[in-house]
Structure formats: C-alpha cells, structure tokens
Design a protein around this nucleic acid. Structure first.
Lengths: 194, 194, 194, 194
DNA sequence: CATGAATGAGGATTCATTCAT
DNA sequence: AATGAATGAATCCTCATTCAT
C-alpha cells in the first residue's frame, strides 16, 4: 500500500519529467500531467502541495538521480587529473544512459524558474562537492592551472554533456571523435602549463 | 510614422526580453507584456501575428543583436589560435555589456520551446559561421586539436559566458582570475598538442 | 457607450443582490452571476476586480440606495421626538418599497463577511449621522431618555424593519397594528420619563 | 464508547460554530472542519449525513443551548412587566456568558441559508413560547401596549442583545449606561400608556 | 470506528484572441 | 493606428462525497 503510493508519486514525477523535456517547463499543465499519468486532476493534490511543488520535486528527484549515479560511479583515486578523467567518464556515461534527466537538469539550470521554486542553496545546486574539492586541491598543489575550480568544472561539465548530446543525436561520430579525445582536451585545458 | 511604429515594435520586444529573463519563457503573457509596454492588449496584434510570433521575434532580434556585435567586433586576422582569442574577447565583451540578451539566448538554447517556434535551421542557430570556418581550417592545418570544431566552439563559448556571468555576479574576481587566463585555458584545450 | 457600460455593471450588481437575498452570501458564484446576467464569466472581470469586489460593490450600492432614500425623505424639522417619528416613517416606507435592498443590508450586517471586505469604517456603516446627531442632542436637552443614542437608534431601526418585514409577509395586519402604534412604542421607549 | 462518540460529535459542532462566527456560513468547509477538529474528512460522515446536516445540527445545538439556558434561568413569576424584566436579565446574562452562540443564532436568523436547511417551523424558530405567552396575556389583560407580542419580543430581544454586544465590545460602558436603564426603556415601550 | 485514497464537479481567475468602433 | 469590450477555453485549485481497507 505504502509502496503503491510511492509508485504513483514517482509516476507523476516521471510523467512531468517527460513533459518538461518535450515541451519545456512552460508546457507543464496539471490537466496534462493528470491525463498522462492516468489519474484525476484532483488526485494530484494528494501527492503534491501545488503545481510549483510538482515542478520542484521533479527537479529534485532528477538531481538526486544524477547525484546517486555519480556517487556510485565516481570514486576519486589519484591525482586531480586522474580524478577529472574518471569524473568525465562517469558523467558521459550518465548522459548517454539517461539523456532525459540530463536534459531536464540543463533546462532548469538555464531557466529563472528555478529561482522561483524556493529551494535552499543546497537544493538548487548540483552536488559536485567531491570533484570540486579534488580540483581545488589540484590547483593548490600546482597540478592544475591557476583558475577558479568552478570555471574548470563548468567547462568540463558542459563540454562532456554537449559532446554526449551530439553523439546521441548522431551529429558526432564517436569513432572518429572518441570520448578520450574530448577528455584529452579537457585535461589540456585544466593542467598547469609547464 | 513608419519609424514610430518600428519603435513601438522594438519596445514590445524589449519588454518581452526582460520578462523572459526574469520570469522565464513561461512567464510571458500578453496581458503582462501589454501592461509593461503601456499599450492595450489588442494593440499588440497590429505588430505581431500571435503570441508565438512575439516570442519568436524576441529570440530573433536578440540573436541579431549578438550577431551584429560579433560581426562588428570580431574580424579574423591571423592564425586559428589568434582568431579564437579575438573571438573570445569579443564574446566576453558582449556578455559584459549586454548580459540580458546573452541570458535570453542561453535560456532559449536550453529550452524545447525553441523547437516549437517553426524557425528555419538557419534562424534557430547562432550565426558563428565565420569563427566556425576558421576553427575548421585550423584543425585541417594541424594548428588545432583533431576535434569536431563544434565541440571546440561550444567549449569556448560556454567557458567564456560562464566566466562573464560570474564576473558580473562578483563570484569571480577578474583581477585574480583575469580573462586572459581563461583564454589561455581555452587555447590550451584547442591547440594541437606537440 | 459609457452609459451602456454602467448599465451592465449595475445589472451585475442587481443580479448579485437577488442572489444574496435568495441564497445567502455563500450562494454567490461567479458562474451563477454570469449566467443570470447573461454574460460570459470572464466578462465580469472587466467590471470588477474579483469576486470580493462584486460582493463589496453590491453592498455599497445598496447602502447608497438606502442612504439616498433617507437623505431625500427625511429632513429633521423639530424636536428629537418629532424627528425620530419622521425618520421611522421614512425608514418604514423604504423597507416596504424596497424590501430586497433592506434584506441585503441586514444580512450583511449580521455576517462576518462584511469584515473581510476591507471597507473603511465609513463604508462599513450605514450613514445615519443626521438622525444620530438629533438623538444625541435630544438626550442632552433632556428630551430623550438618558441612554446611548446608538442603543435607541438600533432599537428603533430593528423594530421598524422587523415590523415592515412582517407586514410584507402578512404575518402582521397593518390595520389592527398600524405603523403609528409601533412608532408610539418607539417614542415611549425613547422619551425621557417625567 | 457511546459517550466518546457523542463527545466527538459535539466537538465537530463546536468547531463549526467557531468557524461560522469567524468566517460566516460560507466559510464552512468540511476540509477545514476536519482539520480544525483533528479528524479525517471522511470520519465526519460517521457523525453527520452531509454538510447541510452539520450546519443544521450546529444551528439546532446552539438553539438548544440558548433555550436550555433561558428555561433554567427564566421562570415567570408575576405580571407581564415583571416577567419581561426577568427575561431580559436572563437573556442579557446569556449574551454575556456565551456571546459566540448568541452571534451564531443571530447570523442564522439573518441568512436565507436557514430556509434551505429543511427545518420544521418549530425547529427554525427560537423557542420563546413561554415569554411569548406571558406577553400575549399581558396585552390581553391591558397591562401591555396593544401590539403584536412578536413585535414587542423582537424589540426587546434585539435591544438587549445589541446592548450586550456593545458592552462586550466596550463600546458602551455598563456603569454609565446600566442594564437596568435599558430594561427601563424596554418596559416603557411595552407598558400600556395610561 | 476510523482513515487515506480517489474523484467529478465546480470554484475563481487568466489567457490569447477577435471585434466593433 | 489604436483601443475597450467581449469571450471561450484553459488555468490551478478546492469541495463534498464515496470507497476500500
């Protein structure tokens, strides 16, 4: 019973995720969500406070998913460069396996709607603490370029996700332009020049 | 007379731009646009076909602005690396001078709404033909890394705009982390390794 | 044109008045008001800000009507007792001629809804300033009983309106129990005992 | 067990009473009643048939309370005038001790909602049979003014309750304007003039 | 006895759009 | 060119009520 409830809640979030990806955040309507989820509109209010809550929970659940994935697949082992490589691979893998959630996160990040969802600072941000710390250490150790780790991280993040999107869209051929080459590029950008 | 009309049209687009930036594309309503523009709702239909048209024209006008700016401030002169540097500077300058239009473009790019606006391929994309050509040439000449020029361009674009945003938000201090350092990073990523 | 607008506005208020009288304030629904007024629901919003505004304006318009009536039909001429008599007659006449508006006012006065309508003190109260002043003077002059004029006024007001209601409902026969007898009663209550 | 049920039922009525007083009859919602009573919405249907039933029972229970109070505190002993005095005192006392229930009764009396509650004639009216009979007798005996006893009763009732309300609201000072003076006024109105 | 889930109907309000002027 | 009036459809949300447990 409890399980069934949670299932239905999840189902609503899934349906909303798909809707956001295909029609944008503006495209989300409770009428449409209810219809797509196969429930009555009023039923939604058992699981969520209001529309903003649905959107918020949708975002948080996808953030959770990507966070869990990275937590599981990325474990820093060696130098900052090595860790950056591992992280890039994990991120790429996620973007390939779960392009929907990736797209959703990116859409939220670009939209001012995120700011209206009264999320805590922590909730609003992707949790990249671990890799961020590694990068920071790398900069301090002189292994990485003297640069705000945030800029390095964003550069790497967007480069990887863009690459993954184009691979998925078959705009880029991963045979002639392999992931390793992209990672090399990121490393070249990040490593401290001799 | 003609001129006056064009002014009013422009005014509507400006108002819409601000609205998209502050409230997202979903936040745009003709009611609000009319009120913000100080005209009557029905009046809008003299200048635009329907709501989708306003959104579309808003996007196109901002794309035009950034395109014009780069056209004017970026003229390729030398090697691919040199051109990339010039381009990065022009882009940074634009992002600092006109953060609103920059933000609008980025928001559109991340949103599926763009796809619903029946824009031609050409209309939908930022016109970076020139720099794209230079980069392509640079790759062919062996000056740049063997990599899809698109990936290089995206990497550079996002790195610069992210940096500019954080400078504007005072999250990054441009004295300790100057633009030149960011450009160095981009170049390191792009240049073909020895 | 202007006239037509005002007519429609008035029409909405009239329809709302009838609805409040027959079904209570809780019975008012924009759907029903629109249907009864023969206009579309959204059209209402051209004339009124929201539902509360309709209810408020309905109350105010009826208050205005009773106020105008009394202003026109009651002009104090002599002693407090004489004036009280004149006032009672005017009030009775109004209650007979326009029982609907009378009923509406009474319903509002008994309901806490009135307090939620953010009316100014002045707007919320029936404007009985004139007779109130006369009564006060009468008390000071020793003509009337030493009593808060408000209590006298309320006593008189309710006695007259109750009487009028019962006459209208044919619960009381005005031949065997004429208005004059009721007024005598009110006077007996108000006059200072010898 | 049985007792516990009755307690809960009473609790629901109490909660509803408060809600009606503070927000009007229109303000009553089963959702809110349930929340305020600390029970689940569906639970209400164990104790009451439907929403109308709750409202109806609320009214009846308060009518019962005021009736019981007067039954207990008012016992006619002498002439009509003396009885009227006793009754007025009892009524005043009740209005002071239990202003909520008094306010509820008055609100119902002014509202057409009462008519929709399919109450019998007897249920709908306040049970003032006793005093009514005394007044009628008084009129017949020539002790009271020749007047419909109903008008006398209403006059007296409203005068007392209005006075009590203003005393409670501290709009009237009971020291300078004591209850006895108000009763004198009522008596003056009721007594047959010499 | 008690409740959480579920729902259809209806609530107020806003929207994009059209039309007469 | 400009606008105020008008509206139907759609928005989010609440309501009273039922049902399975």
């Amino acid at each position: 019973m409890r399980e069934k409830d949670e299932n239905r809640r999840q189902h609503i979030l899934d349906v909303t995720t798909k809707m956001i990806i295909s029609e944008g955040i503006s495209g989300v309507t409770l009428t449409k969500v209810a219809k797509a989820a196969g429930i009555s509109q009023s039923n939604i209010y058992i699981y969520f406070k209001d529309k903003a809550d649905i959107v918020k929970q949708t975002f948080l659940s996808r953030k959770q998913i990507i966070g869990d994935y990275l937590m599981f697949h990325y474990s820093p082992k060696g130098s900052a460069i090595e860790n950056l490589t591992l992280f890039a691979r994990a991120l790429y893998q996620f973007a390939i396996e779960d392009p929907d959630d990736m797209a959703l996160i990116q859409q939220f990040n670009a939209s001012p709607v995120l700011a209206t969802l009264d999320l805590s600072q922590e909730e609003a941000e992707l949790n990249f603490d671990q890799i961020f710390k590694e990068l920071k250490q790398g900069v301090e150790d002189g292994e990485l370029r003297e640069m705000d780790p945030d800029v390095i991280l964003t550069m790497g993040f967007v480069t990887i996700t863009t690459y993954a999107q184009r691979v998925a869209a078959k705009t880029i051929d991963p045979v002639t332009t392999p992931l390793s080459a992209v990672i090399d590029m990121i490393i070249a950008a990040s490593r401290k020049p001799a």
